[in-house]
């Protein structure tokens, strides 16, 4: 019973063994991260907050419209848009910023690093686990919202709703990447969370307000406003949802019109590309920092 018979990896086949095993250990980490996230208080809090707000928005948008409810789908989405742009980035950034810094603070990071896994696997495993947990949390809100829509508004806007979910998942992954990057850079989880909050404020409020002021003060041209605006993943997200809902950005005034005319059918892809860029760039940077700097 206590005989230890597992064959040792010989050095000859060890390399192949390592590549094959990448998925295994990353998945083990992802599974645990997912479980831990779901068991944690922040997850519960955000899930409840997001769900309650999503239901409230769905109801309020459809109230007073009588049986024309199904036409209110667009407004429900617009209402959800505001909610998502506030809550989802906060949730994802904070989830990300706590991850490495938290392990570091508890001392568990050292123990993990002594295991036969690479630093990249460790980071990616945690990222994947958190990403799945975040999507899981948002699905609760979206599911309840869809139930309200089905009840009050019939089946209108199904494909737009689907795209809203896809773009929201993209947004939360990009915010998670930013959070993870901040986490890698911070020694303590308090610092990481502080930086996360700061990044959230910056992306959600400060950058837009700054660009508004810039637009007015410097009389920026439409192409300049558009180019600067889509750098912000939140703006790219918003435009992506609207362009999927209305097939055009003309509701966003001259700048939106310019974008629709210039990029045409490529516009949704351009916006999706911005968000995908914001998923991979911070994550890649986090990977480089985590593996090269070697902080424990």
């Amino acid at each position: 019973m206590t005989t230890l018979t597992t064959p040792k990896p010989t050095s000859a086949c060890a390399t192949r063994h390592a590549y094959r095993s990448f998925a295994g250990s990353t998945l083990a980490l992802a599974r645990r991260e997912f479980r831990d996230a779901l068991a944690s208080r922040w997850f519960l809090l955000y899930t409840i907050a997001f769900s309650v707000l999503a239901i409230a928005v769905s109801f309020m948008s459809l109230a007073g419209s009588g049986s024309q409810g199904f036409a209110g789908f667009g407004r429900t989405t617009a209402g959800l848009l505001n909610l998502i742009m506030l809550v989802v980035p906060l949730m994802a950034i904070i989830a990300g910023s706590g991850t490495i810094a938290g392990e570091r603070e508890r001392g568990t990071l050292l123990y993990l690093l002594a295991q036969p896994i690479s630093r990249a696997e460790l980071l990616l495993g945690k990222y994947i686990g958190l990403a799945v947990a975040l999507c899981c949390s948002m699905f609760v809100g979206f599911g309840l919202s869809a139930a309200v829509l089905a009840w009050r508004a019939g089946g209108a806007g199904l494909s737009s709703f689907f795209m809203l979910i896809v773009f929201t998942c993209g947004l939360s992954l990009s915010m998670l990447s930013i959070g993870v990057l901040l986490s890698v850079l911070s020694r303590r989880s308090g610092v990481a969370n502080g930086l996360g909050l700061f990044a959230w404020l910056l992306l959600v409020f400060v950058s837009d307000l700054g660009l508004m002021a810039g637009t007015v003060l410097f009389k920026l041209r439409v192409q300049e406003v558009f180019a600067i605006a889509i750098i912000n993943p939140l703006q790219a997200f918003k435009m992506g949802v609207i362009v999927n809902m209305n097939a055009s950005l003309d509701v966003l005034g001259p700048v939106g019109m310019y974008a629709s005319l210039t990029y045409g059918n490529a516009l949704p892809w351009l916006l999706a590309a911005v968000i995908i860029g914001w998923i991979f760039m911070p994550l890649a940077l986090a990977l480089v920092m985590f593996t090269k700097r070697g902080g424990v």
């Binding site: 959600v204 558009f226 605006a229 939140l234 966003l252 005034g253």
Partner: peptide
């Protein structure tokens, strides 16, 4: 108008 529907 590009900034409508935003928290800002």
């Amino acid at each position: 108008r590009i900034f409508v529907h935003s928290p800002a």
